[in-house]
Nucleic acid binder design. Structure first.
Length: 426
RNA sequence: GUGACCGUAGCUCAAUUGGUUAGAGCACCGGACUGUGGCUCCGGGGGUUGUGGGUUCAAUUCCCAUCGGUCACCCCA
């Protein structure tokens, strides 16, 4: 094997780039429908933009180096800090709420695995300046429509939703003290992965009593059943927080995405900065990694940018989504790129084709012809191989001056035309 | 960062459990079908068997290392 791209990095051959463009096109379409405008920032940022809030450990996971001006820099691993800086700098001048989206290429220095490379593109959609749960509903609806736009349904993808505020109230209500919240979150996060007794053991080690432990598992199980869950919520004294979540769910109904959404307390999301409703999108078969994740982070802009504004957003990577679209047959075949192939017979030359091509191109058509000198039969073969929509043949002995033969590739229909008139109609 | 499995042509795979010059299909390039098309036929290019060592008369095959891929941890996006 000749050396390829760096580990975890991809070469995009035309086939792959066509798929990438298809995904980006769907994303931009949905962002537009929801009134989001596109922005971008630098792919290289000061290292402390990321260490300031995530701590020095984060450096292990970054592509970072010292530049020639002795600055500590890093390739961006996520877009939110850049967004926070940009919004904070002009916060007063912008109409709220701000709806911004971006499709940055992000970098993480980690061992590559399926669905998880060292580089990927990620749709980021964020709303800044709105604290009401209607914004949360709007956000998850846009993420779900970013599935629909590719022909995926709620048979293919499920949105799992939790709420940090509700969860905190519940955990306090069942007797988990503040300093044990982290352990409780970790256990919830691992609910599907690790067996119950392992989780119990960990919680016990963290100091969580047996009564709160039992109620924790009861809560997680009950989330799927609304009446059971409502009772547990009342018992834990978290009714106010639950009412907010129910308002959110009602909004998703109004937005037409309720049947994609499932309440699931095991959705914790690693990022510590989430403060409210959080969600993830998974393929329904559970074969792939998360497609998308996001939520509300009302305090992040203040800590990163010094401006206190409520905010929420999600990131959706191109790698897992691409795998899902291929697996479900939703990736379209490459469309024919060529409008016209120009071929010439033996009473002409390559310049006969060039003159026609130049006129067609001036009219905006995509046109190719055989370079060098080739026999007509070969030119026609090439026209077929190139996938041209139609072929125009000029300069054969059968044609008089100014005439051409046009053939549509789709149905093989052929007709003799006046060349200049035909070009003018193309 | 830790552990497990796997590396043969651009792709999918062969090579009689160590034995001649590592093959086939697809793809690509060219020729024929004496100049209007997806067919057919013929030919061609392309591999240091991921790389480097070791064992052996002999290594794609066995051993070690390394690089890469995959998977599980870790962590998250």
């Amino acid at each position: 094997m000749s050396p390829g791209a760096l580990p975890g990095f991809r070469d995009f051959y035309p086939t792959e780039l066509a798929e990438r463009s298809f995904i980006f096109g769907g994303w931009r379409e949905v962002a537009r429908e929801y009134g989001f405008v596109e922005y971008d920032g630098p792919p290289l940022e000061p290292l402390d933009l990321y260490t300031k809030k995530s701590g020095a450990e984060i450096v292990d996971q970054l592509y970072n180096f010292t530049d020639k001006g002795k600055r500590e820099v890093a390739l961006r691993p996520e877009m939110t800090p850049t967004l926070a800086r940009m919004v904070a700098a002009r916060a007063n001048a912008m109409r709220k709420p701000v709806r911004w989206f971006s499709i940055p290429q992000l970098f993480r220095y980690e061992r590559a695995q399926r669905g998880r490379l060292r580089e990927h593109f990620q749709l980021n959609m964020d709303i800044v300046g709105e604290a009401d749960v209607s914004a949360d509903a709007e956000l998850i609806a846009s993420a779900i429509d970013a599935m629909r736009v590719f022909g995926l349904t709620n048979e293919d993808v499920v949105a799992r939703v939790s709420d940090r505020r509700l969860l905190n109230a519940l955990l306090r209500g069942i007797g988990v003290p503040e300093q044990q919240l982290g352990a409780a979150y970790a256990a919830l996060d691992k609910l599907d992965r690790d067996p119950r007794d392992v989780l119990e053991q960990r919680l016990e080690t963290a100091g969580v009593g047996s009564e709160p432990r039992a109620r924790l598992f009861e809560l997680a199980r009950a989330a799927a059943n609304e009446s059971d869950f409502a009772r547990l919520v009342r018992d834990a004294g978290a009714s106010a927080e639950y009412d907010e979540l129910r308002r959110y769910l009602a909004h998703t109904e109004a937005l037409g995405v309720r049947d994609w959404v499932r309440l699931d307390l095991s959705i914790v999301r690693g990022l510590a900065y989430y403060t409210g409703i959080v969600f993830e999108l998974f393929d329904a078969k559970g074969e792939l990694r998360a497609i998308c994740g996001g939520g509300r982070y009302d305090t992040l802009l203040e800590s990163l940018g010094g401006v206190s504004l409520p905010a929420l957003g999600f990131g959706m990577g191109d790698v897992v989504l691409g795998e899902l679209l291929r697996a479900r047959g939703k990736m379209p075949p490459a469309a024919p790129a060529l409008d016209v192939w120009v071929a010439y017979g033996e009473s002409g030359s390559v310049e006969s084709a060039m003159r026609v091509a130049a006129k067609l191109r001036a009219r905006g058509r995509s046109v190719e012809y055989a370079l060098g000198h080739q026999k007509l039969a070969r030119q026609l073969k090439a026209a077929h191989a190139a996938g041209a929509r139609q072929t125009v043949v000029v300069a054969t002995p059968e044609l008089s001056d100014g005439e051409a033969m046009v053939r549509r590739m789709a149905d093989g229909g052929e007709q003799k035309v006046q060349l200049d008139a035909w070009i003018a109609s193309e």
